[in-house]
């Protein structure tokens, strides 16, 4: 039985198409990422799959159950962690956990094994009110609550949003460790580099899925040779490259600039000498493997400029 499957999901908010015929299949035990910026439709899709929103059309099943008709049964099998911290801030860590355990007719003790790796880290603070926890600890608590009833499928909506790199890495470590319990996980994020931490990903933009693949598969599909270029002054390199007649795409990445050419085959030295002729010194150039972000931007390049409707 496929843990998550969706077909032709359409979701409209007034005139805005939040989801435009989205189809998706996630296999058992997979850590699956929905990658895309705000407004791509990630949250709507997760809410529809989590039985919290009704789609305008299309069908979806969780563990073989229809999200519309069998939502009650689905809710027994899923864990959900919304984008916004949604536990009771006036209750303590322990009280929140006990409450969610009681809703599922279970207890913290009964399912302690499943959450212990995560819960152990916040257990010293179990008497503290949830509202007084740091961001990282809030997440650990939210995740513990989402797991307290041994869900088969776990939905996490942008768990790393606004979170510093340290807590972000902690969270991904926790998700990786859940795979040993064979929990299927669907997680959304706007951080492209987090795609590498997933088994498979869907890149989303403007309500559409642009590509679904493993991160490696996606990168292997990057069509053009990609070059990384740098000199002392990235801003200058960007400007000069954008003016270059053969330039296809020019994007800064850290202190490097990623460049693709309109031509199929090029000589990197030609670009180097172009830059050096335009008063850029110390130019380094090398061919590199694309990142997920390169793939994303190449797939969305047509959408870069906003056209008023």
């Amino acid at each position: 039985m496929t843990p998550i499957s969706a077909e032709n999901i359409v979701m409209n908010y007034g005139k805005v198409k939040a989801l435009d015929a989205v189809s998706l299949k996630v296999e058992k035990g997979e850590l699956f990422g929905l990658i895309g910026p705000d407004g791509a439709g990630k949250t709507s899709l997760i809410k529809i799959l989590g039985t919290l929103l009704l789609a305008n059309s299309g069908t979806a099943e969780i563990e073989g159950m229809d999200v519309v008709k069998q939502y009650q049964n689905i809710r027994r099998q899923i864990g959900y962690m919304p984008g916004k911290f949604s536990l009771y801030q006036d209750l303590t860590v322990e009280e929140n956990l006990n409450f969610y355990a009681s809703i599922f007719g279970t207890t913290l003790e009964e399912n302690y094994d499943l959450i212990k790796d995560i819960y152990k880290q916040i257990e010293p603070f179990k008497k503290r009110r949830a509202g007084k926890l740091s961001g990282g600890m809030k997440q650990k608590l939210a995740l513990s609550c989402a797991l307290i009833h041994k869900p088969k499928v776990l939905f996490l909506d942008e768990p790393t949003r606004g979170v510093d790199p340290v807590s972000r890495q902690d969270l991904w470590d926790m998700l990786q460790s859940l795979k040993k319990d064979n929990i299927t996980i669907l997680v959304s994020t706007a951080y492209m580099e987090e795609a590498l931490l997933c088994d498979r990903i869907s890149l989303m933009d403007h309500g559409k899925i642009l590509a679904t693949n493993s991160p490696d598969g996606l990168i292997a599909n990057f069509e053009k040779p990609l070059y990384a270029i740098r000199s002392g002054n990235s801003f200058k390199v960007i400007k000069k490259l954008k003016d270059y007649e053969h330039a296809n795409s020019v994007y800064p990445f850290g202190d490097w600039v990623h460049y693709t050419d309109k031509r199929d085959t090029i000589d990197p030295l030609e670009i180097k000498s172009y830059l050096e002729n335009n008063d850029t010194t110390n130019v380094e150039i090398k061919q590199i493997k694309a990142s997920v972000e390169d793939c994303y931007m190449s797939l969305t390049s047509k959408n870069q400029n906003y056209e008023p409707a």
Partner: peptide, 8 residues
Amino acid sequence: TSGVDPSI
């Protein structure tokens, strides 16, 4: 730029 499209 939190949550903003990479190219934008």
